[in-house]
């Protein structure tokens, strides 16, 4: 097990190096640059732009810039944002909380609701509930998130005035109630897709389990249905979901992007979008490395957890 983990970690680190090189190249080769924003407002002459470009080291050959960036990153210096001058790690850190709040809430809703829908759907396969859940899930997976978010704002904020039309909090309020009030709409919008996905996976996982021999054996033994369900079926059905969760976790970062834009949520997604828009190279690279690490960590953890949870599986 230790060797397996060590091997996987080594592979992951090599992958990160490759990802960083590809990402750096794509980003810098893309037309436009961090100075376009200043050129657009025409307050700086070409001479000024050239000087700032030199001062930022953007006039050096790309491989040199990459090695410089890479070397610094190894020493823990991820560079400074071109926009607000903050160091990249703290810039990311300052946006992480908001995204985490949104993601965690949406995930909890999705896991609870999705599991319930999935299990019930599997137990009563082809019932009205199952059909409605299936159709509902498919539609939820098919609606563009930004469209759903805008409609939600229009209905619940503009027309009904029940919920605030975005933002993480009322500035200067700071109460828990205020935070929750702001969280409802974006969390539900984000949870919609997650719930649908989780429900679908849960259903098929559960279907697989309840047709297994040991469940039939348990039934034949006369063990009560609820006990079979909680003790045997559910436990085994949840196992593959660990993998799903591990793989799903990083995509939540991206999925929150659109939700964050629509609901003015100061999270990672917005930061990423703005940083790409302004070509804030250090921050984009920082987020890229951060999310790549999350992806690799997610799949690694999922595999390890899976092995720990199910002793029948031998990894390696």
């Amino acid at each position: 097990m230790a060797r397996y983990v060590a091997n996987r970690v080594a592979q992951a680190i090599m992958l990160l190096v490759v990802v960083s090189a590809i990402g750096f190249a794509i980003l810098h080769l893309a037309p436009g640059g961090p100075l376009s924003q200043y050129a657009a407002s025409a307050q700086m002459t070409q001479e000024d732009l050239d000087r700032v470009s030199r001062q930022l080291g953007l006039d050096r050959p790309l491989p040199i810039q990459y090695l410089d960036w890479f070397g610094r990153m190894l020493r823990g210096d991820w560079g400074h944002s071109y926009r607000d001058g903050g160091d990249v790690l703290s810039v990311i850190g300052s946006h992480l909380g908001a995204t985490f709040e949104l993601m965690a809430t949406a995930t909890i809703i999705a896991v609870l609701l999705g599991s319930w829908i999935g299990v019930l759907g599997a137990l009563r396969r082809y019932s009205l509930f199952d059909t409605l859940a299936t159709v509902g899930a498919m539609i939820a997976l098919s609606i563009p998130t930004f469209w759903f978010g805008l409609v939600a704002i229009y209905v619940f904020s503009v027309k009904l005035d029940w919920l605030p039309s975005g933002n993480q909090e009322t500035i200067g309020d700071g109460s828990l109630l205020d935070l929750l009030h702001h969280l409802i709409a974006p969390a539900l919008v984000l949870a919609l897709v997650e719930t649908a996905m989780w429900g679908r996976f849960m259903r098929s996982s559960m279907l697989e389990v309840i047709n297994q021999d040991y469940i039939r054996t348990a039934r034949a033994k006369g063990i009560p249905e609820w006990r079979i369900l909680t003790r045997h079926a559910l436990r085994n059905a949840l196992l593959p979901m660990i993998t799903v969760a591990g793989l799903q976790f990083p995509t939540l970062l991206g999925g929150a992007l659109v939700t964050e834009t629509v609901f003015t949520w100061p999270g990672m997604g917005r930061l990423f979008l703005d940083s790409i828009g302004y070509r804030d190279y250090p921050v984009v690279m920082g987020i890229l490395m951060f999310s790549a690490t999350m992806v690799l960590l997610g799949s690694l953890l999922a595999d390890i957890l899976y092995a720990v949870a199910d002793p029948r599986i031998r990894v390696g």
Binding site: I22, G23, I26, L27, P250, L257
Partner: peptide
């Protein structure tokens, strides 16, 4: 490992 949004935006710019 790349968020698909990154791929889309970066490649679109090219």
């Amino acid at each position: 490992c790349f968020p698909s949004i990154f791929l889309l935006l970066a490649l679109a710019a090219l």
